[in-house]
Design a binder for these strands. Structure first.
Lengths: 222, 222
DNA sequence: TGTACATCAGTGAACGCGCGTTCACTGATGTAC
DNA sequence: TGTACATCAGTGAACGCGCGTTCACTGATGTAC
């Protein structure tokens, strides 16, 4: 029956892809018990391997955790980038889609998200992690810059970096407070997505951007 | 020399205020190692007491953690309330002061803040904690309602609850991403306080509120 | 095609450690009389 | 004022447990010739 212990799928003495299997096991543990609730030993056990085996692939627990966080940032970046889709069909629609992708990632990859933002990994002394994190943020920033470039020319141009920081903070705040499926989430009279979308609309209006209706009208005119 | 071990301040067989001493010790450990990095045993040791002593005051580790989180929410509420100061000298000034108080609390009480928002304590099954959390949020919500009541009557009234949720999320996002003194914080080209203040101003403008300059002018006219 | 050998991923036993928790206990405090 | 007693906060020894880490090892794989 259970000759296939855990997610090991061993076929012989050598595992074959133990490194990935350990990452998978750790993600599972983090999702169930939080970033601090996973142990090297348990990940090994769940991969069907002796407790000493992980040391062939990771120096220690923190290196595995950092590796998960970095992988998370890379997938996060890819997802935001796909949602942005180079600003198609129009900048505002694409911008809002990035916000939705942010929340979707946090909800669908809670373990990655935890490792990225709540694991307490120091960013200095982890340059690769910092870079991966900045590459993800760069998507939001690039989108903000395109929005700024599109702003009505009679308005003062808002600084794109500040915009991006505001949007990021708002998204992260909503994701942290309301955006997880688990018991730590607070109740909300609307979906996190709607809350974020409304907030972004108000914010952009405050910067002098035309509303969605106005944009629809202006694009209908062309 | 060191007859006063740790924060114990014992004077005899009985500690006197062991419960508070344990909370203090736990706060210290959480601030240094994160909410998961504190142990019952270590808190006892740091309070200068045997490992069995804490069981006289807390059922287990989680009860101590929940107690810290609840105390945190209560202090948080008090601080926000003091900053709000019933909307004096004017609603907008007081509102921005609440935002600053939010960030100040997160920075000055990182251990409480962690226990409140990042400890993974389930809110259901912890009714007292949920209530304390909602009482703190109620301050922000009441402030938002006063702002709404003050809105120019020719504008559509924005929903105060949504406003409060946006402001809370933005504050929490900024606090989480940039607002801690430690190594997990990201670099920022401005202070978290300035970032939040600017974001709130833009947001309120987007809702149709008069800007600070306009308000200053209108109050100067009186 | 076969063989010798280097490489290296994983073994399994062992270690020291700190934790959570229990237990019968003991010392201090307060109170009834 | 003194004494007996109930209460209860803290002791200290003990337990079982799982973790991180090390070590000499062994089995599988690939490659040189």
């Amino acid at each position: 029956m259970s000759w296939d212990k855990g997610r090991g799928r061993r076929e012989g003495y050598h595992h074959g892809n133990l490194k990935e299997a350990l990452v998978e096991a750790a993600l599972d543990l983090i999702a169930r018990k939080g970033p601090a609730g996973f142990t090297f030993a348990e990940a090994a056990r769940s991969a069907g391997v002796s407790p000493a085996a992980p040391y062939r692939h990771f120096r220690d627990r923190d290196e595995l955790l950092a590796s998960i966080a970095q992988q998370g940032f890379e997938q996060f970046e890819a997802r935001l980038n796909a949602a942005w889709n180079d600003g198609r069909p129009d900048t505002l629609t694409a911008f809002q889609r990035v916000g939705k992708a942010y929340l979707a990632f946090a909800r669908e990859h809670p373990a990655h998200y935890s490792a990225m933002f709540e694991s307490g990994l120091p960013l200095d002394g982890n340059p690769a992690l910092l870079i991966a994190s900045e590459r993800a943020f760069a998507i939001i920033r690039a989108a903000a810059e395109r929005l700024v470039a599109m702003a009505p020319p009679d308005q003062p141009r808002p600084p794109a970096l500040m915009m991006a920081l505001h949007i990021w903070s708002l998204s992260h705040g909503i994701a942290s407070l309301f955006g997880r499926g688990d018991a730590t989430s607070r109740k909300l009279p609307m979906s996190p997505e709607d809350l974020l979308e409304a907030g972004v609309l108000v914010y952009l209006k405050g910067l002098g951007f035309p509303t969605a209706q106005q944009m629809a009208q202006s694009s209908a005119k062309k």
